[in-house]
Design a protein around this nucleic acid. Structure first.
Lengths: 228, 228
DNA sequence: TGCACAGTGTGACGTACGTCCCACCGCATA
DNA sequence: TATGCGGTGGGACGTACGTCACACTGTGCA
Protein backbone atom coordinates (compact mmCIF):
# COMPACT_ATOMS: atom_id res chain seq x y z
CA UNK A 1 0.00 0.00 0.00
CA UNK A 2 1.45 3.31 -1.11
CA UNK A 3 1.60 6.53 0.90
CA UNK A 4 -1.07 7.87 -1.37
CA UNK A 5 -3.34 4.96 -0.49
CA UNK A 6 -2.75 5.57 3.20
CA UNK A 7 -3.76 9.18 2.69
CA UNK A 8 -6.92 8.27 0.78
CA UNK A 9 -7.85 5.71 3.40
CA UNK A 10 -7.35 8.11 6.29
CA UNK A 11 -10.10 10.34 4.89
CA UNK A 12 -12.67 7.55 5.13
CA UNK A 13 -15.05 7.85 8.11
CA UNK A 14 -13.76 4.59 9.50
CA UNK A 15 -10.26 5.95 10.00
CA UNK A 16 -11.09 9.54 10.76
CA UNK A 17 -11.40 8.97 14.49
CA UNK A 18 -8.16 7.05 14.85
CA UNK A 19 -4.73 8.42 15.65
CA UNK A 20 -1.73 7.49 13.50
CA UNK A 21 -0.98 4.42 15.57
CA UNK A 22 -4.53 3.10 15.59
CA UNK A 23 -4.90 3.71 11.86
CA UNK A 24 -1.75 1.76 11.21
CA UNK A 25 -2.99 -1.17 13.24
CA UNK A 26 -6.37 -1.20 11.49
CA UNK A 27 -4.69 -0.96 8.08
CA UNK A 28 -2.93 -4.21 8.85
CA UNK A 29 -6.29 -5.98 8.55
CA UNK A 30 -7.10 -4.50 5.18
CA UNK A 31 -6.92 -6.57 2.01
CA UNK A 32 -6.65 -4.92 -1.37
CA UNK A 33 -8.94 -5.78 -4.30
CA UNK A 34 -8.47 -4.84 -7.94
CA UNK A 35 -11.28 -4.71 -10.48
CA UNK A 36 -11.38 -4.11 -14.22
CA UNK A 37 -14.00 -1.82 -15.75
CA UNK A 38 -17.36 -3.60 -15.70
CA UNK A 39 -16.27 -6.26 -13.25
CA UNK A 40 -18.59 -7.17 -10.39
CA UNK A 41 -17.38 -7.10 -6.78
CA UNK A 42 -20.54 -8.57 -5.27
CA UNK A 43 -24.11 -9.18 -6.32
CA UNK A 44 -27.47 -8.35 -4.83
CA UNK A 45 -28.68 -11.32 -2.78
CA UNK A 46 -25.25 -12.72 -1.93
CA UNK A 47 -24.21 -12.97 1.67
CA UNK A 48 -21.21 -10.91 2.66
CA UNK A 49 -19.84 -9.15 5.68
CA UNK A 50 -17.08 -7.01 4.22
CA UNK A 51 -17.02 -3.29 3.81
CA UNK A 52 -14.88 -1.49 1.27
CA UNK A 53 -13.21 1.84 0.84
CA UNK A 54 -12.36 3.01 -2.67
CA UNK A 55 -8.64 3.65 -3.06
CA UNK A 56 -8.64 4.50 -6.74
CA UNK A 57 -11.26 4.55 -9.50
CA UNK A 58 -15.05 4.57 -9.32
CA UNK A 59 -17.58 1.92 -8.44
CA UNK A 60 -21.36 1.95 -8.75
CA UNK A 61 -24.01 0.40 -6.50
CA UNK A 62 -27.04 -0.85 -8.39
CA UNK A 63 -30.32 -2.57 -7.59
CA UNK A 64 -32.32 -4.63 -10.02
CA UNK A 65 -36.12 -4.61 -9.99
CA UNK A 66 -37.89 -7.96 -10.45
CA UNK A 67 -38.61 -7.05 -14.09
CA UNK A 68 -34.93 -6.39 -14.77
CA UNK A 69 -34.90 -2.63 -14.74
CA UNK A 70 -31.96 -1.13 -12.89
CA UNK A 71 -31.57 1.64 -10.40
CA UNK A 72 -28.26 3.25 -9.52
CA UNK A 73 -27.96 4.07 -5.83
CA UNK A 74 -24.66 5.89 -6.04
CA UNK A 75 -21.30 6.21 -7.69
CA UNK A 76 -18.40 6.14 -5.28
CA UNK A 77 -14.87 7.47 -5.62
CA UNK A 78 -11.70 7.54 -3.52
CA UNK A 79 -12.13 7.63 0.29
CA UNK A 80 -15.78 6.64 0.04
CA UNK A 81 -17.08 3.62 1.91
CA UNK A 82 -19.69 1.04 0.93
CA UNK A 83 -20.88 -2.47 1.73
CA UNK A 84 -21.06 -1.70 5.43
CA UNK A 85 -24.80 -2.32 5.72
CA UNK A 86 -24.36 -6.09 5.50
CA UNK A 87 -21.65 -5.78 8.09
CA UNK A 88 -23.71 -3.91 10.67
CA UNK A 89 -26.94 -5.71 9.87
CA UNK A 90 -26.19 -9.27 8.87
CA UNK A 91 -28.40 -9.80 5.81
CA UNK A 92 -27.73 -10.51 2.16
CA UNK A 93 -26.52 -7.58 0.10
CA UNK A 94 -29.31 -5.41 -1.24
CA UNK A 95 -27.27 -3.95 -4.06
CA UNK A 96 -24.60 -5.06 -6.50
CA UNK A 97 -21.22 -3.35 -6.71
CA UNK A 98 -19.76 -2.98 -10.19
CA UNK A 99 -16.60 -1.15 -11.26
CA UNK A 100 -17.30 1.88 -13.44
CA UNK A 101 -13.61 2.31 -14.12
CA UNK A 102 -10.64 0.14 -13.39
CA UNK A 103 -10.31 0.41 -9.65
CA UNK A 104 -8.64 -0.62 -6.43
CA UNK A 105 -10.42 -1.12 -3.13
CA UNK A 106 -9.51 -1.72 0.49
CA UNK A 107 -11.66 -4.45 2.05
CA UNK A 108 -12.26 -5.14 5.73
CA UNK A 109 -14.19 -8.11 7.12
CA UNK A 110 -16.58 -8.27 10.01
CA UNK A 111 -14.25 -10.25 12.22
CA UNK A 112 -11.42 -7.80 11.64
CA UNK A 113 -13.56 -4.79 12.39
CA UNK A 114 -15.60 -6.04 15.33
CA UNK A 115 -12.87 -5.69 17.98
CA UNK A 116 -12.36 -2.10 16.87
CA UNK A 117 -16.01 -1.28 17.33
CA UNK A 118 -16.09 -2.61 20.86
CA UNK A 119 -12.60 -1.54 21.86
CA UNK A 120 -12.58 1.94 20.31
CA UNK A 121 -15.94 3.57 20.92
CA UNK A 122 -14.88 6.65 18.95
CA UNK A 123 -14.79 4.48 15.82
CA UNK A 124 -18.37 3.36 16.39
CA UNK A 125 -19.45 6.94 17.04
CA UNK A 126 -17.78 8.06 13.84
CA UNK A 127 -19.58 5.33 11.91
CA UNK A 128 -22.90 6.34 13.43
CA UNK A 129 -22.22 9.84 12.20
CA UNK A 130 -21.39 8.57 8.72
CA UNK A 131 -24.59 6.53 8.53
CA UNK A 132 -26.65 9.44 9.85
CA UNK A 133 -25.22 11.64 7.09
CA UNK A 134 -26.03 9.04 4.48
CA UNK A 135 -29.57 8.73 5.75
CA UNK A 136 -29.97 12.49 5.47
CA UNK A 137 -28.64 12.52 1.94
CA UNK A 138 -30.85 9.62 0.92
CA UNK A 139 -33.88 11.46 2.28
CA UNK A 140 -32.90 14.48 0.19
CA UNK A 141 -32.69 12.37 -2.95
CA UNK A 142 -36.07 10.88 -2.16
CA UNK A 143 -37.64 14.31 -1.81
CA UNK A 144 -36.17 15.24 -5.20
CA UNK A 145 -37.77 12.22 -6.80
CA UNK A 146 -41.14 13.50 -5.63
CA UNK A 147 -40.75 17.24 -6.13
CA UNK A 148 -38.18 17.86 -8.86
CA UNK A 149 -38.61 17.20 -12.58
CA UNK A 150 -36.11 15.15 -14.58
CA UNK A 151 -34.00 18.04 -15.88
CA UNK A 152 -33.75 19.33 -12.32
CA UNK A 153 -32.61 15.96 -11.06
CA UNK A 154 -30.07 15.69 -13.87
CA UNK A 155 -28.71 19.10 -12.91
CA UNK A 156 -28.52 18.06 -9.25
CA UNK A 157 -26.73 14.82 -10.14
CA UNK A 158 -24.19 16.66 -12.29
CA UNK A 159 -23.51 19.16 -9.52
CA UNK A 160 -23.03 16.36 -7.03
CA UNK A 161 -20.66 14.54 -9.38
CA UNK A 162 -18.87 17.82 -10.04
CA UNK A 163 -18.32 18.37 -6.35
CA UNK A 164 -16.80 14.96 -5.92
CA UNK A 165 -14.99 14.37 -9.20
CA UNK A 166 -14.76 17.79 -10.86
CA UNK A 167 -11.45 19.31 -11.93
CA UNK A 168 -11.16 22.99 -12.78
CA UNK A 169 -9.77 23.55 -16.28
CA UNK A 170 -9.33 26.63 -18.45
CA UNK A 171 -12.46 25.89 -20.50
CA UNK A 172 -14.66 25.12 -17.47
CA UNK A 173 -15.18 22.60 -14.71
CA UNK A 174 -14.34 19.17 -16.10
CA UNK A 175 -16.47 16.38 -14.65
CA UNK A 176 -15.25 13.04 -15.81
CA UNK A 177 -18.04 10.96 -14.32
CA UNK A 178 -17.30 7.86 -16.43
CA UNK A 179 -21.02 7.11 -16.72
CA UNK A 180 -22.96 6.37 -19.88
CA UNK A 181 -26.18 8.33 -20.30
CA UNK A 182 -27.99 5.11 -19.52
CA UNK A 183 -26.26 4.93 -16.14
CA UNK A 184 -26.87 8.62 -15.50
CA UNK A 185 -30.54 7.96 -16.21
CA UNK A 186 -30.61 5.08 -13.72
CA UNK A 187 -28.99 7.38 -11.17
CA UNK A 188 -31.70 10.03 -11.43
CA UNK A 189 -34.55 7.58 -11.92
CA UNK A 190 -35.51 8.47 -15.47
CA UNK A 191 -35.27 7.07 -18.99
CA UNK A 192 -32.09 7.37 -21.03
CA UNK A 193 -33.91 9.35 -23.72
CA UNK A 194 -35.27 11.97 -21.33
CA UNK A 195 -31.86 12.45 -19.73
CA UNK A 196 -30.31 12.82 -23.15
CA UNK A 197 -32.79 15.55 -24.03
CA UNK A 198 -32.19 17.36 -20.74
CA UNK A 199 -28.43 17.28 -21.36
CA UNK A 200 -28.89 18.46 -24.94
CA UNK A 201 -31.04 21.33 -23.68
CA UNK A 202 -28.39 22.35 -21.11
CA UNK A 203 -25.69 22.17 -23.77
CA UNK A 204 -27.74 24.32 -26.13
CA UNK A 205 -28.11 26.97 -23.45
CA UNK A 206 -24.35 26.87 -23.06
CA UNK A 207 -24.52 25.77 -19.46
CA UNK A 208 -22.26 22.84 -20.26
CA UNK A 209 -20.50 20.91 -23.01
CA UNK A 210 -21.08 17.19 -23.45
CA UNK A 211 -18.11 14.88 -23.84
CA UNK A 212 -17.78 11.09 -23.82
CA UNK A 213 -18.64 9.97 -20.27
CA UNK A 214 -18.01 13.47 -19.07
CA UNK A 215 -19.38 17.00 -19.09
CA UNK A 216 -17.65 20.35 -18.88
CA UNK A 217 -19.67 22.75 -16.78
CA UNK A 218 -19.57 26.25 -18.21
CA UNK A 219 -22.20 28.07 -16.16
CA UNK A 220 -22.49 26.43 -12.77
CA UNK A 221 -24.79 29.13 -11.41
CA UNK A 222 -27.49 28.58 -14.00
CA UNK A 223 -27.21 24.86 -13.48
CA UNK A 224 -27.57 25.34 -9.75
CA UNK A 225 -30.64 27.48 -10.23
CA UNK A 226 -32.18 24.90 -12.56
CA UNK A 227 -31.62 22.17 -9.96
CA UNK A 228 -33.88 23.87 -7.39
CA UNK B 1 -43.39 5.32 33.96
CA UNK B 2 -45.68 2.30 33.93
CA UNK B 3 -44.66 -1.33 33.48
CA UNK B 4 -46.23 -1.18 30.07
CA UNK B 5 -44.00 1.77 29.15
CA UNK B 6 -40.95 -0.11 30.31
CA UNK B 7 -41.98 -2.98 28.09
CA UNK B 8 -42.52 -0.75 25.04
CA UNK B 9 -39.21 0.96 25.65
CA UNK B 10 -37.30 -2.30 25.95
CA UNK B 11 -38.25 -3.20 22.39
CA UNK B 12 -36.55 -0.08 21.00
CA UNK B 13 -33.15 -0.72 19.38
CA UNK B 14 -31.49 1.46 21.97
CA UNK B 15 -32.46 -0.80 24.85
CA UNK B 16 -32.38 -4.13 23.08
CA UNK B 17 -28.72 -4.73 23.80
CA UNK B 18 -28.93 -3.92 27.50
CA UNK B 19 -29.61 -6.26 30.37
CA UNK B 20 -32.30 -5.46 32.94
CA UNK B 21 -29.89 -3.52 35.10
CA UNK B 22 -28.45 -1.45 32.30
CA UNK B 23 -31.89 -0.71 30.91
CA UNK B 24 -33.02 0.51 34.31
CA UNK B 25 -30.03 2.82 34.59
CA UNK B 26 -30.57 4.27 31.10
CA UNK B 27 -34.29 4.75 31.80
CA UNK B 28 -33.35 7.00 34.68
CA UNK B 29 -32.14 9.55 32.11
CA UNK B 30 -35.33 9.51 30.09
CA UNK B 31 -37.78 12.38 30.24
CA UNK B 32 -41.37 11.92 29.18
CA UNK B 33 -43.13 14.21 26.69
CA UNK B 34 -46.84 14.42 25.99
CA UNK B 35 -48.33 15.82 22.79
CA UNK B 36 -51.88 16.51 21.68
CA UNK B 37 -52.99 15.56 18.17
CA UNK B 38 -51.48 18.02 15.68
CA UNK B 39 -48.93 19.38 18.12
CA UNK B 40 -45.35 19.87 16.94
CA UNK B 41 -42.42 18.31 18.82
CA UNK B 42 -39.71 19.95 16.76
CA UNK B 43 -39.39 21.74 13.45
CA UNK B 44 -37.17 21.33 10.43
CA UNK B 45 -34.20 23.67 10.75
CA UNK B 46 -34.15 23.82 14.55
CA UNK B 47 -31.12 22.62 16.42
CA UNK B 48 -31.66 19.68 18.70
CA UNK B 49 -29.74 16.76 20.07
CA UNK B 50 -32.46 14.60 21.56
CA UNK B 51 -33.76 11.30 20.28
CA UNK B 52 -37.20 9.97 21.09
CA UNK B 53 -38.92 6.64 21.42
CA UNK B 54 -42.69 6.51 21.00
CA UNK B 55 -44.37 5.12 24.13
CA UNK B 56 -47.95 5.55 22.99
CA UNK B 57 -49.68 7.05 19.96
CA UNK B 58 -48.34 7.93 16.52
CA UNK B 59 -46.09 10.67 15.27
CA UNK B 60 -45.18 11.70 11.73
CA UNK B 61 -41.92 13.04 10.33
CA UNK B 62 -42.40 15.56 7.53
CA UNK B 63 -40.23 17.69 5.29
CA UNK B 64 -41.32 20.86 3.57
CA UNK B 65 -40.12 21.77 0.09
CA UNK B 66 -39.17 25.42 -0.54
CA UNK B 67 -42.51 25.95 -2.32
CA UNK B 68 -44.44 24.65 0.69
CA UNK B 69 -45.34 21.18 -0.52
CA UNK B 70 -44.92 18.50 2.11
CA UNK B 71 -43.43 15.07 2.10
CA UNK B 72 -44.06 12.49 4.81
CA UNK B 73 -40.96 10.47 5.64
CA UNK B 74 -42.63 8.06 8.00
CA UNK B 75 -45.27 7.46 10.62
CA UNK B 76 -43.96 6.02 13.85
CA UNK B 77 -45.69 4.03 16.56
CA UNK B 78 -44.78 2.49 19.92
CA UNK B 79 -41.19 1.28 20.36
CA UNK B 80 -40.01 3.17 17.29
CA UNK B 81 -37.16 5.64 17.51
CA UNK B 82 -36.63 8.98 15.76
CA UNK B 83 -34.66 12.20 16.02
CA UNK B 84 -31.39 10.34 16.41
CA UNK B 85 -29.81 11.74 13.26
CA UNK B 86 -29.23 15.15 14.86
CA UNK B 87 -27.78 13.34 17.83
CA UNK B 88 -25.22 11.31 15.89
CA UNK B 89 -24.50 14.01 13.33
CA UNK B 90 -24.78 17.41 14.98
CA UNK B 91 -26.76 19.42 12.44
CA UNK B 92 -30.16 21.11 12.47
CA UNK B 93 -33.14 18.79 12.16
CA UNK B 94 -34.01 17.95 8.57
CA UNK B 95 -37.61 17.02 9.33
CA UNK B 96 -40.40 18.17 11.60
CA UNK B 97 -42.07 15.82 14.08
CA UNK B 98 -45.82 16.26 14.52
CA UNK B 99 -48.22 14.16 16.56
CA UNK B 100 -50.74 12.27 14.42
CA UNK B 101 -52.65 11.19 17.52
CA UNK B 102 -52.37 12.20 21.12
CA UNK B 103 -49.10 10.64 22.18
CA UNK B 104 -46.43 10.12 24.79
CA UNK B 105 -42.72 9.95 24.05
CA UNK B 106 -39.54 9.09 25.90
CA UNK B 107 -36.77 11.61 25.19
CA UNK B 108 -33.05 11.19 25.69
CA UNK B 109 -30.44 13.92 25.23
CA UNK B 110 -27.00 13.73 23.72
CA UNK B 111 -25.23 14.23 27.04
CA UNK B 112 -27.24 11.48 28.69
CA UNK B 113 -26.61 9.01 25.89
CA UNK B 114 -22.97 9.71 25.09
CA UNK B 115 -21.48 7.86 28.08
CA UNK B 116 -23.53 4.81 27.12
CA UNK B 117 -22.19 4.83 23.60
CA UNK B 118 -18.61 4.91 24.75
CA UNK B 119 -19.01 2.74 27.83
CA UNK B 120 -21.30 0.08 26.35
CA UNK B 121 -20.09 -0.77 22.86
CA UNK B 122 -22.99 -3.21 22.37
CA UNK B 123 -25.35 -0.22 22.47
CA UNK B 124 -23.43 1.49 19.69
CA UNK B 125 -23.38 -1.72 17.67
CA UNK B 126 -27.12 -2.10 18.10
CA UNK B 127 -27.65 1.45 16.92
CA UNK B 128 -25.45 0.86 13.88
CA UNK B 129 -27.66 -2.08 13.07
CA UNK B 130 -30.81 0.01 13.46
CA UNK B 131 -29.46 2.71 11.16
CA UNK B 132 -28.34 0.13 8.61
CA UNK B 133 -31.86 -1.32 8.57
CA UNK B 134 -33.35 2.12 8.10
CA UNK B 135 -30.99 2.84 5.23
CA UNK B 136 -32.06 -0.39 3.56
CA UNK B 137 -35.71 0.41 3.99
CA UNK B 138 -35.24 3.93 2.67
CA UNK B 139 -33.50 2.56 -0.41
CA UNK B 140 -36.46 0.25 -0.97
CA UNK B 141 -38.89 3.14 -0.81
CA UNK B 142 -36.73 5.07 -3.23
CA UNK B 143 -36.77 2.23 -5.73
CA UNK B 144 -40.55 2.12 -5.44
CA UNK B 145 -40.78 5.80 -6.29
CA UNK B 146 -38.97 5.07 -9.53
CA UNK B 147 -40.46 1.73 -10.52
CA UNK B 148 -43.92 1.42 -8.98
CA UNK B 149 -47.05 3.36 -9.99
CA UNK B 150 -49.15 5.25 -7.47
CA UNK B 151 -51.72 2.50 -6.79
CA UNK B 152 -48.84 0.12 -6.20
CA UNK B 153 -47.21 2.49 -3.75
CA UNK B 154 -50.51 3.01 -1.96
CA UNK B 155 -50.89 -0.76 -1.63
CA UNK B 156 -47.35 -1.03 -0.29
CA UNK B 157 -47.92 1.74 2.21
CA UNK B 158 -51.14 0.13 3.46
CA UNK B 159 -49.42 -3.22 3.85
CA UNK B 160 -46.61 -1.60 5.79
CA UNK B 161 -49.05 0.23 8.05
CA UNK B 162 -51.02 -2.99 8.45
CA UNK B 163 -47.93 -4.83 9.59
CA UNK B 164 -47.18 -2.25 12.22
CA UNK B 165 -50.61 -1.09 13.34
CA UNK B 166 -53.05 -3.72 12.05
CA UNK B 167 -55.43 -5.58 14.34
CA UNK B 168 -57.18 -8.73 13.19
CA UNK B 169 -60.98 -8.46 13.50
CA UNK B 170 -63.84 -10.67 12.40
CA UNK B 171 -64.57 -8.57 9.32
CA UNK B 172 -60.92 -8.28 8.22
CA UNK B 173 -57.60 -6.75 9.20
CA UNK B 174 -58.30 -3.38 10.80
CA UNK B 175 -55.63 -0.78 10.09
CA UNK B 176 -56.26 2.34 12.08
CA UNK B 177 -53.51 4.44 10.54
CA UNK B 178 -54.94 7.77 11.76
CA UNK B 179 -53.85 9.49 8.55
CA UNK B 180 -55.97 11.67 6.31
CA UNK B 181 -55.83 10.83 2.62
CA UNK B 182 -53.79 13.97 2.20
CA UNK B 183 -51.17 12.60 4.60
CA UNK B 184 -51.28 9.19 2.95
CA UNK B 185 -50.63 10.94 -0.35
CA UNK B 186 -47.62 12.78 1.10
CA UNK B 187 -46.35 9.45 2.38
CA UNK B 188 -46.39 7.78 -1.04
CA UNK B 189 -45.35 10.89 -2.96
CA UNK B 190 -48.54 11.49 -4.91
CA UNK B 191 -51.51 13.85 -5.02
CA UNK B 192 -54.43 13.42 -2.67
CA UNK B 193 -56.82 12.94 -5.58
CA UNK B 194 -54.83 10.13 -7.16
CA UNK B 195 -54.54 8.32 -3.85
CA UNK B 196 -58.25 8.70 -3.29
CA UNK B 197 -58.96 7.14 -6.69
CA UNK B 198 -56.58 4.26 -5.99
CA UNK B 199 -58.29 3.58 -2.67
CA UNK B 200 -61.73 3.79 -4.27
CA UNK B 201 -60.58 1.30 -6.90
CA UNK B 202 -59.28 -1.13 -4.25
CA UNK B 203 -62.53 -0.79 -2.32
CA UNK B 204 -64.59 -1.47 -5.43
CA UNK B 205 -62.65 -4.66 -6.05
CA UNK B 206 -63.46 -5.64 -2.47
CA UNK B 207 -59.82 -5.75 -1.46
CA UNK B 208 -60.54 -3.39 1.41
CA UNK B 209 -63.13 -1.18 3.04
CA UNK B 210 -62.46 2.50 3.64
CA UNK B 211 -63.19 4.00 7.04
CA UNK B 212 -62.34 7.34 8.61
CA UNK B 213 -58.54 7.44 8.99
CA UNK B 214 -58.49 3.68 8.67
CA UNK B 215 -58.96 0.84 6.23
CA UNK B 216 -60.11 -2.73 6.76
CA UNK B 217 -58.14 -5.09 4.59
CA UNK B 218 -60.34 -7.84 3.17
CA UNK B 219 -58.07 -9.50 0.62
CA UNK B 220 -54.48 -9.05 1.65
CA UNK B 221 -53.15 -11.37 -1.04
CA UNK B 222 -54.57 -9.34 -3.91
CA UNK B 223 -53.28 -6.20 -2.30
CA UNK B 224 -49.85 -7.76 -1.96
CA UNK B 225 -49.84 -8.78 -5.59
CA UNK B 226 -50.88 -5.27 -6.66
CA UNK B 227 -48.01 -3.78 -4.67
CA UNK B 228 -45.38 -5.60 -6.73
C1' DT C 1 -80.84 25.10 14.21
C1' DG C 2 -77.49 26.76 11.06
C1' DC C 3 -72.92 27.82 9.53
C1' DA C 4 -68.08 26.80 8.98
C1' DC C 5 -64.71 23.83 7.93
C1' DA C 6 -61.95 19.65 7.34
C1' DG C 7 -62.00 15.70 4.82
C1' DT C 8 -63.61 12.91 0.96
C1' DG C 9 -65.36 11.52 -3.91
C1' DT C 10 -65.13 12.26 -8.81
C1' DG C 11 -64.93 14.27 -13.43
C1' DA C 12 -62.38 17.33 -17.16
C1' DC C 13 -58.07 18.68 -18.89
C1' DG C 14 -53.10 19.42 -19.71
C1' DT C 15 -48.50 17.78 -19.69
C1' DA C 16 -44.11 15.61 -18.38
C1' DC C 17 -42.14 11.77 -19.28
C1' DG C 18 -42.01 6.85 -20.71
C1' DT C 19 -41.97 3.84 -24.79
C1' DC C 20 -41.02 2.90 -29.47
C1' DC C 21 -38.62 4.13 -33.32
C1' DC C 22 -34.76 4.99 -36.39
C1' DA C 23 -30.61 7.46 -37.89
C1' DC C 24 -25.91 8.39 -36.88
C1' DC C 25 -21.13 7.98 -35.12
C1' DG C 26 -16.86 5.82 -33.50
C1' DC C 27 -14.49 1.79 -32.60
C1' DA C 28 -13.37 -2.97 -32.66
C1' DT C 29 -13.03 -7.41 -34.98
C1' DA C 30 -13.03 -10.20 -39.32
C1' DT D 1 -13.58 -2.72 -46.75
C1' DA D 2 -17.42 -4.61 -44.67
C1' DT D 3 -20.02 -5.84 -40.31
C1' DG D 4 -21.24 -5.49 -36.28
C1' DC D 5 -22.11 -3.19 -31.66
C1' DG D 6 -22.34 0.14 -27.81
C1' DG D 7 -23.48 4.64 -27.19
C1' DT D 8 -25.79 9.03 -28.57
C1' DG D 9 -29.34 12.27 -30.79
C1' DG D 10 -33.87 13.16 -31.47
C1' DG D 11 -38.83 12.68 -33.41
C1' DA D 12 -43.89 10.61 -32.83
C1' DC D 13 -47.17 8.94 -29.77
C1' DG D 14 -49.60 7.31 -25.61
C1' DT D 15 -50.62 7.66 -20.85
C1' DA D 16 -50.26 8.09 -15.82
C1' DC D 17 -50.74 11.40 -12.93
C1' DG D 18 -50.91 16.33 -11.47
C1' DT D 19 -53.95 20.36 -11.32
C1' DC D 20 -58.35 22.50 -11.17
C1' DA D 21 -63.00 22.47 -10.11
C1' DC D 22 -67.01 21.39 -7.61
C1' DA D 23 -70.24 18.68 -4.99
C1' DC D 24 -71.04 15.94 -0.82
C1' DT D 25 -70.57 14.42 4.08
C1' DG D 26 -69.88 14.55 8.93
C1' DT D 27 -68.55 17.04 13.04
C1' DG D 28 -67.88 20.98 15.99
C1' DC D 29 -69.21 25.36 17.49
C1' DA D 30 -72.26 29.63 17.91
Amino acid sequence: MTDRDVDVLSRAPLFEALDEQGAKALRANVTEVRLARGQTLFNEGEVGDRLYVVLEGKIKLTRTAPDGRENLLSVLGPSEMFGELSLFDPRPRTASAIAVTECRLAGLGHDDLRPWLTGHPEVAVQLLRALAQRLRKTNDVMADLVFTDVPGRVAKALLDLAERFGQPGDSGLHVHHDLTQEELAQLVGASRETVNKALADFAQRNWLRIEARAVVILDIERLRKRSK
